[in-house]
């Protein structure tokens, strides 16, 4: 690691102030960022740790019936505290990485990084969540903009994510055997007015909504409804662990299984 200063603000306002310093980089749980720093793939002058900001931690329901999760809330805490309100999302959180990673990693960090194989982007996009920052609110559909790309501007911090709670949802994940990130995973959420399907791990463009499946499931919410749908492999990731064709195929299987789990 290159050396850096560490700021430990205790409020969002102080964090924003610290982020104004030259070459400042926010760090939440650090479970992705610290390995990146070790590999010297990033060289911030200042790391602004968000883990001491109590106002960014916690899980609650708002008046609109949305599940609200503070940006610095760990996966372990979401797994425990969201279970009663939104079990599918709690289950997603309970399956990220491993127990020690879940005790440090946070939803804000995951959403801000937008790794193409991360779990939370699928949960957020699949739920039609709203990402709240220190500046504004961004709909998930506008927020995820490609592999490691988001709508966040320089210095902008994810303070909260608000999830509309669907009538039923399920996250089905197929593991990449080395990293234990999803090779392909599908988040299927059934709302009163339609179905959302978000896919992670598969595409060179990061997390995406699978429109054909949403339409088919909107008409007939059954595993069979997606059985005949083929996914174009053109933009899919191809690597050691699976070809583009294989990933395209898994999208169908994971989606079907997610639907089967809740129908």
């Amino acid at each position: 690691m290159y050396n850096f200063d560490v700021e430990m603000p205790s409020t969002v306002a102080d964090a924003v102030k610290a982020m104004a310093r030259d070459e400042a980089q926010p760090m939440s749980g650090g479970q992705t960022l610290i390995p990146t720093l070790k590999a010297r793939l990033a060289a911030p002058s200042v790391l602004v740790s968000l883990t001491g900001i109590d106002e960014m931690k916690g899980v609650c329901m708002d008046d609109a019936g949305r599940l609200c999760i503070g940006g610095a809330t760990t996966h372990a805490r979401v797994a425990a505290e969201a279970a009663a309100h939104y079990p599918a999302l709690a289950s997603l959180a309970a399956r990220i990485g491993d127990p020690a990673v879940r005790n440090r990693g946070t939803i804000g960090g995951s959403i801000a990084n937008n790794d193409p194989s991360a779990c939370y982007p699928a949960g957020a996009l699949g739920s039609g969540a709203t990402i709240t920052t220190n500046k504004r609110e961004i709909a998930a559909d506008d927020y995820f903009q490609g592999m490691f790309e988001t709508a966040l501007e320089e210095g902008e911090i994810v303070t909260e994510v608000k999830f509309p709670v669907p009538t039923a949802a399920h996250y089905e994940k197929f593991l990449q055997p080395a990293s234990r990130f999803p090779l392909v995973a599908a988040y299927v959420a059934k709302f009163g007015d339609g179905v959302r399907v978000a896919i992670t791990g598969a595409s060179n463009n990061g997390v995406f909504r699978w429109g054909e499946a949403e339409a088919a499931l909107g008409a007939n919410f059954a595993a069979d409804a997606v059985a005949g749908l083929a996914v174009d492999a053109t933009d899919m990731i191809s690597d050691l662990h699976g070809t583009a064709e294989y990933r395209a195929h898994l999208i169908g299987v994971m989606t079907k299984r997610a639907v089967a789990a809740i129908s």
Binding site: P177, A178, S179, D239
Partner: peptide, 21 residues
């Protein structure tokens, strides 16, 4: 699970526990 793989340029593709299972 395990596979140590080089590409044609001699770069090791499975160079960490992220890719070496």
């Amino acid at each position: 699970l395990e596979n140590c793989v080089y590409d044609d340029e001699g770069q090791l593709l499975s160079a960490s526990y992220m890719d070496y299972a």
